[in-house]
């Protein structure tokens, strides 16, 4: 056995170990920042409700000053460790918890970025979320590491003060 073989065996293992520590740290920091920013935007609700169910009469429509389209998006990928765990799980079946947190982070981040683009409005209505997998080779079915793009968009409403 020469060095070439050793590298071939140990490189993936080293990558998985490195990815475990960095990935866990990145995720914890991201969640910390998400929770902190969500608290800041508590007074700007993002609703999935349609316009007509919120503003029923002419009087309430008069209150609206401005309505504009806002969006926020993020492209995020799993770390190599989670990818490794997921590929094992894929073999045996069952819930992929490691991907659940990725999608949760991506959606919350996209909604936050949308809110950051309309900080002075009073609410965002008709919120839509769009998720697409832009995995590397062969998309979701291939062996590429899962990378998702989440887009959040809605109409920001500013009321007359």
């Amino acid at each position: 056995m020469d060095y070439g073989d050793l590298i071939q065996i140990f490189l993936p293992i080293v990558l998985v170990i490195v990815a475990y520590f960095t990935g866990t740290k990145v995720e914890a920091e991201h969640y910390k920042s998400i929770i902190e920013r969500e608290k800041r935007f508590l007074n700007l609700p993002a609703l999935t409700m349609e316009f007509k169910s919120l503003f029923k009469d002419a009087e309430s429509i008069q209150q609206i000053e401005r309505a504009e389209l806002v969006d926020g998006s993020v492209v995020i990928s799993v770390d190599y460790f989670k990818h490794f765990v997921a590929s094992l799980k894929n073999f045996f079946g069952g819930a992929l918890n490691s991907y659940e947190s990725l999608l949760d982070r991506a959606r919350r981040e996209a909604i936050l970025r949308m809110k950051e683009k309309a900080p002075n409005s009073d609410m965002i209505i008709n919120l839509k979320l769009e998720t697409s997998s832009i995995g590397k080779e062969g998309g979701s079915s291939g062996k590429g590491v899962l990378t998702v793009e989440v887009l959040a968009y809605g109409t920001a409403i500013s009321l007359k003060k």
């Binding site: 990558l15 490195v18 990815a19 960095t22 990935g23 990145v26 995720e27 991201h30 998006s73 993020v74 492209v75 995020i76 990928s77 799993v78 770390d79 190599y80 989670k82 990818h83 981040e109 832009i134 590397k136 590491v145 990378t147 793009e149």
Partner: peptide, 17 residues
């Protein structure tokens, strides 16, 4: 590809899209 190892946001792609 490097970022895929450590995980997290791929800022280049976010900007591109």
């Amino acid at each position: 590809g490097l970022k895929n190892v450590v995980g997290g946001e791929l800022k280049g792609y976010t900007e591109l899209l």
